[in-house]
Design a protein around this nucleic acid. Structure first.
Length: 419
RNA sequence: GGUGGAGUCGCCUAGUGGCCGAGGGCGCACGCCUCGAAAGCGUGUGAGGGGGCAACCCCUCCGUGGGUUCAAAUCCCACCUCCACCGCCA
């Protein structure tokens, strides 16, 4: 969440910054609710102070009657205060982060700013197939069976594709562990608090799978569990930066994406991902954001995928992000660049909601947090499409082979239960 | 899932309705003492929020949420976590 106290002191600065992403009016509503809350608070607190002063000992009958009246008045005042606080908090929870001045202007995907391009899209002298056309004949990517089992947007990956995908995650995990990220296998069912804290609730509610019976949510990214590691903790300055890399399966309802990317496993309800997460000092977060991007580029370059880096427009950012870079890899069959990684600087937005602070010089301050994709299956899809030949055989990048990936995909079908 | 016990200011702990809206010890910080240190002595020691230019004042927080009461760390209810044992399963 944003710093309400600061917003109160500098409403014009906050309004101008939030207006860039279309939230200026929301801020004004919040400030009005906050003013109401302060009125009620002052009244309730002065009544409570009065009660405390006069209830030091056993009261006489007259006093008792007076105290009963005071208690009733206080109860009413406290109810007003609580209601005003609830109204204020509800508005506050929906205010997005202040955008970074260097985040691109604009309201949607098309307004993203090109940062740089790397590599050359391959030139084919045949019509390149997409990953499903490459994977279906051998049964490595089986959407039909996935749909029969679980509905649309669920994929079976089998045989060499399964091995290659596992190798991809292991490769990325290994590289990032080597850069100082602590590997983590976290819970992926989490309580409401973590979902609010990371900013997925309340704004992304329709995209979350929820287990009603147990009051738990399935996470859409390991960011949630990694952000939760230090929830309510007070870190020592020496513990920063704290860097983690997790592997998790992720779940997204993809509400509102009907008709989008319906073919293959490009956009599915369940996918696996390696994710980086950083806790750092406030003044370091911009630097770490560039560093996360550099790590991501290094990984994509090691795989040999042509890509470009985009600075996402403020209006297209998720609520917690102040700035976001996407890496978009080339997908030959789609003839365009598509997102394969994303890294965000969430500054103190998640830290405030999750109450993660650190001690420096006797003072407590909120940490800054960042997250970035190590790899998802989309990287493998790009590999399949970029490194295919006219026979539908895919050459797997060298770096993945030492992690158990076969040298090529497409030369043998899965062994068991072929149809 | 069942039964029993526990959860207090960094740590340990006192505490059975108003003198605890929180005492003590440890630790930590500063000071005294000392050539220096230790010991000893003294002082201080959390978080969140509101008000004030400020010194400062006020409110909240004893696992969480409700309830009883003029008044709750203390009584009642529910839940959570931990420990022990039992049952079931991996």
């Amino acid at each position: 969440m944003i710093d309400l106290k600061a917003a109160r002191q500098e409403p014009d600065r906050y309004r101008a910054a939030l207006a860039r992403r279309g939230a200026g009016a929301d801020l004004d509503a919040l400030l009005a609710a906050d003013a109401r809350w302060r009125e009620h608070t002052e009244r309730a607190e002065s009544l409570r102070a009065q009660q405390k002063r006069s209830s030091k000992g056993k009261p006489g009958p007259d006093e008792l009657a007076e105290l009963r009246g005071l208690a009733a008045e206080l109860t009413a005042a406290a109810e007003d205060q609580a209601q005003a606080a609830a109204e204020r908090d509800e508005l506050l929870a929906r205010i997005p982060n202040l955008p970074d001045p260097s985040a691109a202007d604009g309201m949607d995907e098309a307004d993203a700013e090109l940062v740089r391009t790397w590599g050359e899209p391959p030139a084919f002298d045949f019509e390149p197939r997409d990953h499903l056309d490459l994977g279906s004949p051998t049964g490595w990517v089986d959407m039909a069976r996935g749909a029969r089992l679980s509905g649309s947007r669920f994929a079976y990956r089998m045989g060499d594709v399964a091995l290659a995908e596992m190798a991809l995650y292991r490769f990325v995990l290994d590289r990032l562990a080597g850069k100082g990220f602590l590997p983590v296998l976290p819970p992926i069912l989490v309580g409401e608090r973590a979902m609010y804290g990371t900013g997925f609730l309340p704004t992304e509610e329709s995209n979350l799978y929820r287990l009603e019976k147990d009051d738990l949510y399935l996470t859409g990214t390991s960011e949630v569990a990694l952000a939760g590691i230090h929830m309510d903790e007070r870190l020592e300055e020496e513990q920063l930066p704290a860097r983690y890399v997790a592997f998790t399966t992720n779940f997204r309802r993809e509400a509102g994406a009907a008709g989008k990317d319906t073919k293959g496993m490009f956009r599915v309800h369940q996918f696996d991902k390696v994710e980086m997460y950083v806790y750092c000092r406030p003044e370091e977060s911009a630097g770490f954001h560039e560093q996360l991007l550099a790590h991501e580029e290094e990984l994509v370059q090691a795989l040999g995928l042509p890509y470009r880096v985009m600075n996402i427009a403020v209006g297209d950012l998720g609520a917690p992000a102040a700035k976001k870079y996407d890496i978009e890899a080339w997908f030959p069959a789609q003839r365009r660049y598509r997102e394969i990684t994303s890294c965000s600087n969430t500054t103190d937005y998640q830290a405030r909601r999750l109450n993660v602070r650190f001690r420096r010089g006797g003072k407590l301050d909120f940490v800054h947090t960042l997250n970035g994709t190590g790899a998802t299956a989309r990287a493998l899809l790009s590999i399949m499409e970029n490194f295919q030949d006219e026979h539908g055989t895919v050459t797997v990048p060298e770096v993945l082979r030492q992690y158990g990936a076969p040298a090529t995909l497409g030369t043998r079908p899965p062994a068991a239960g072929q149809s």
